[in-house]
Write a protein that binds this DNA or RNA. Structure first.
Length: 571
DNA sequence: GTCCAGACTTGACAGCAGTGAG
DNA sequence: CTCACTGCTGTCAAGTCTGGAC
């Protein structure tokens, strides 16, 4: 039986929060799966120092293989990467090795590199027998991929412990190249219920700790050595626990929809405040609302790449223009955001905003904070006063979902073909991705695949032309000699023309879609920002199969929405 | 207030499997 | 059957936000 309104789970209030912070009653699992032990290189594969063969100790050799595997990557050409790697590698060496190996430039990993290339080649040419073995292996690991939470079998998101390797940060990360160490069972904390079957550590080992904390959702955790942060094993997005949280997130965003007008007048009032702090707050929230910027927490300098969000914007990240490209009062943004993705945007703003920004920038250096009186904690406290549960990131969710809903309403009509509807959907999705600045590297094969598509279109055009000629010819013949046979021929030729026209149209749509998608990533917004009920309702209303919009993983994650939504739902 | 640990969401991307054309 | 291309899945880094200690 499909319920139209989601039932409020037992022990939860209407926002889906547990009253007592408890996330589960029972939790049982098998613990984490460890990566395989290091296998030393065969004897005929050598490392060379200064041209001489050197037999490395297993621990040193393992770290050398991490570097050797990356030899072709741009990373290894960066000085920071090399420096970090070499320092950490030397830590792993025996005294003797450390005495000998003093300069990375004298190290020759090429033979090791080639060895791994050959191995990859071999793996590709795997026989059926080996593939069957792989399948069997998969079956063996399957039991690790599920747990039992409150009596339900649930899929786990990441049940493997991360393997050792070299840290690859994004952008200009000061820690790139550092050694990410192998995690031992002795580093691992297990979280499960008291009365459950406690997972067994590997033979000869023991866990760091076994705890029974029902106020958190993770099953396994460990501390990672590069940043000192905690890593977790948690449930898959398809799980009930994650699904409810997701639903709750969108409900809060819908609540903002009802309050947003009041909040907007409030922050506009702040623009005129006597207090500098309130003015900054007003402008920051305006940016977060209008441009879907991230909150922008402070980051530890020198520990991470230099990236910013709204509150951490610096003077150097914006340029003010009284006039630009025929527009008035324009702010030009240019900064690196999350994952060192560039945000570049020229935005016309209200006169008062520009005036305020000028004020904020007065007597400051380029590397001074633009909003020096506020931070994300203060901003979120203010937002909480306007609406319970409101934080900066809710604006991203709200604006993304609202945009999708608006765009879909505007771009779809029922007389479109399914293909046209899907193009409309993708366009709506794309508007959101642009708003949220979700970018991707242009696919490596982009130019080529566009060219292929173009050729296909040209071929179709020719076929269509020929078909049209044949149709005309057939019509002529029929006019002169009205036989049944010729009538049939005309009909047949008409059908061919029709079919070709359809195919051509489809190809052209595909081309447009792909071109417009070149550097835009749709996945992130689809997965994290767009209320799935909007898409489900749209599919139902316009007769588009849900499979055209969501793949299997996405359908699993959004099962809650697919179940509960009818075609009238509006965000 | 400020600092920091902790928990959880968000994000780009590599590598793989599946698929359809030749 | 092979090969090229695409879409999916897993990976793990990088954010947000909360709460507690001082």
């Amino acid at each position: 039986v499909k319920t139209k309104t989601l039932e409020i789970p037992e022990g939860r209030n209407k926002e889906g929060c547990s009253h007592d912070g408890k996330k589960w009653k029972t939790l049982e699992h098998k613990g984490p799966l460890f990566p395989p032990e290091y296998e030393p290189l065969p004897e005929n594969v050598s490392f060379y120092y200064n041209g001489e063969h050197v037999q490395l100790s297993p621990a040193t050799e393992e770290v050398a293989t991490f570097y050797a595997k990356m030899l072709e990557h741009e990373y290894t050409t960066k000085e920071v990467f090399q420096k970090n790697f070499f320092a950490d590698w030397r830590e792993e060496m025996t005294d003797e090795e450390r005495g000998l190996i003093r300069s990375l430039s004298k190290c020759d990993f090429r033979e090791i590199h080639q060895y791994f290339l050959d191995q990859a080649e071999k793996r590709k040419a795997m026989t059926k027998e080996e593939k069957r073995q792989k399948e069997a292996q998969k079956l063996l690991t399957e039991e690790y991929s599920f747990c039992t939470l409150d009596g339900h079998r649930e899929k786990i998101g990441n049940f493997r412990v991360e393997p050792p390797g070299l840290f690859r940060g994004r952008g200009e990360h000061p820690k790139m190249g550092k050694l990410k160490k192998r995690i031992q069972p002795e580093d691992i904390t297990i979280n499960c219920s008291k009365d459950s079957k406690i997972p067994a550590p590997p033979a000869g080992h023991r866990w760091k700790k076994v705890q029974h904390d029902d106020t958190v959702t993770w099953l396994v955790s460990w501390v990672e050595n590069v940043q000192g942060s905690i890593k977790y094993i948690m449930l898959n997005p398809s799980s009930k626990l994650k699904g409810e949280k997701d639903w709750q997130k969108y409900e809060i965003a819908r609540k903002l929809k009802l309050k947003v007008d009041a909040i907007r007048s409030e922050y506009r009032r702040d623009w005129k405040s006597r207090e500098m702090k309130k003015r900054q707050r007003g402008v920051a929230i305006y940016f977060i609302d209008k441009l879907a910027l991230r909150a922008g927490n402070e980051k530890e300098e020198g520990e991470t790449a230099d990236t910013v969000g709204c509150c951490s914007l610096r003077v150097e990240h914006i340029t003010l223009h009284e006039q630009l490209d025929g527009l008035e009062h324009v702010v030009e943004f240019d900064f690196l955001g999350k994952d060192s993705i560039r945000y570049y945007n020229k935005v016309p703003v209200e006169k008062r905003v520009l005036k305020n920004l000028k004020l904020f920038m007065e007597n400051k250096n380029p590397d001074d904070d633009l909003f020096d009186r506020i931070n994300t904690t203060y901003l979120n406290k203010t937002l909480q006063d306007s609406m319970k549960g409101l934080t900066a990131k809710v604006f991203r969710t709200y604006n993304a979902s609202t945009t999708l809903q608006d765009q879909l309403n505007r771009l779809t009509s029922s007389d479109m073909s399914v293909e046209e509807k899907i193009l409309a959907y993708n366009r709506a999705n794309r508007a959101v991705a642009i708003l949220c600045n979700h970018q991707r590297a242009a696919p490596k094969t982009f130019e080529k695949s566009m060219q292929n598509l173009q050729e296909k279109i040209e071929l179709k055009e020719k076929l269509l032309e020929t078909a049209k000629k044949e149709l005309k010819e057939a019509k002529n013949q029929y006019r002169q000699n009205k036989t049944d046979k010729l009538k049939k021929l005309v009909e047949q030729k008409e059908k061919v023309v029709e079919r070709l026209k359809e195919q051509l149209k489809k190809l052209r749509l595909q081309m447009t879609d792909r071109e417009e998608n070149k550097v835009i990533a749709l996945g992130t917004s689809k997965l994290n920002y767009l209320d799935p009920r909007i898409s489900v309702a749209w599919c139902k209303k316009f007769g588009v199969p849900i499979e055209k919009i969501y793949n299997k993983t996405q359908r699993d994650k959004f099962a809650w929405a697919i179940d509960m939504t009818d075609e009238d739902f509006q965000f």
